[in-house]
Computed example of a mutant assay.
Amino acid sequence: MNLRFLETFVWVARLKSFRLTAEKLFTTQASVSSRIAALEADLGVKLLLRDSRGVSLTPEGSRVLEYAERMLDTAQAMKQSLGAERTRVGRVRLGIMDTVIHTWMSALVAELTARYPQVEIELVADTALNLREHLHKGFVDVILQTDLLREECIRSLDLARYPMGWIVASGSALHREYADLAELARERILTFSRNSRPHQDVASLLQAAGAHRLRLNCVNSVSAITRLLRDGFGVAALPPALVASELARGELALLDGLLAPPSLELVASWQTGVELVEEVVGVCRQVLARYAQEAGERRIVLVQGSRA
């Protein structure tokens, strides 16, 4: 239904004149008549009566007027809301762990910049442990990391899971079959920074499989892990989503037949009471949902209820 035609009808009903409506809308009486006729044809009812005394509403026209006014009010509210986003000013400090940087951060920054062109988006890239400390100290407003935080003045939302896998350089000596995780653990294992959730999960998994002398190499940079992998330095416990391009090109390979490490959690945590923060978290959910749809569940799985 054409909102311009509805607007024309509302003004005719209010002013009770096609001439005054034409002046109000900076158009001609012929154009006003044409819009009303098109609206009546669309609805299949007569809306207005014109006689020597002026213009009046039919019973159907009175009912349509109520709906038309509501629809125009809703459209105006929507425009004001969108306009409010674009006139927002200020700064939002966003802390992001490396996993997000190498998957959907660029899309997130592009979306935030488009929605809030006058808001400064300050990015802090760090480990999940450090990001939580930054949030506690008030150095950042929102963080994307691995743990739910249940503390006063901080809210957390469980967003998604990155499935993990054992990844090696294709064609290297490490690219072979392993009887079990205990045998795999005899090789150098690359994982995330020490005492991080992935590091602890990998260590626990390998120890439970009977490996006691672990050769864990903790690296806090996905780029560094990827370079070490390509050079055949070790086996990485890593989400395949982080090296999707290298896997697609055949530079890296995912080992089959072994129990994978627990999935890497993705959690948004933020300081309450900070302007714009709740909106930014909502944008994060929307961008993440689009990324998850494109990447597929082998790369990332949304937590039930986190879909925006």
Rank of each mutant, 00 (worst) to 15 (best):
N2D: 15
L3M: 10
T8S: 02
T8K: 00
F9A: 08
F9Y: 11
V12M: 00
L15K: 02
K16T: 11
S17C: 05
F18Q: 06
F18R: 05
T28M: 00
Q29W: 02
A38T: 07
A38D: 03
A41G: 07
G44Q: 03
K46W: 03
L47W: 09
S52P: 01
E60V: 07
G61H: 01
R63F: 08
V64L: 10
L65T: 01
Y67Q: 11
A68V: 00
R70F: 12
A75V: 04
Q80F: 14
L82H: 11
A84K: 10
R91H: 11
R91V: 15
R93T: 10
R93Q: 05
G95L: 08
S106H: 12
A107I: 05
E111P: 00
T113N: 11
P117V: 02
Q118S: 14
V119R: 09
E120G: 11
E122M: 14
V124I: 15
A125P: 06
N130L: 13
E133P: 09
Q145W: 07
R150T: 12
I154W: 00
L157E: 12
L159T: 00
R161I: 15
M164P: 01
I167T: 06
A169Q: 15
G171D: 06
G171Q: 07
S172E: 04
R176C: 11
A182V: 06
A182K: 03
L184Q: 00
L190I: 10
S204Q: 08
A209Y: 08
G210L: 04
H212Q: 12
R213W: 12
R215Q: 12
L216C: 01
N217T: 13
D231C: 07
D231Q: 14
G232V: 10
F233C: 04
A236P: 10
A241K: 05
E251A: 09
P261F: 02
Q286D: 07
A289L: 10
A292L: 05
I300H: 02
G305Y: 00
G305I: 06
R307Y: 03
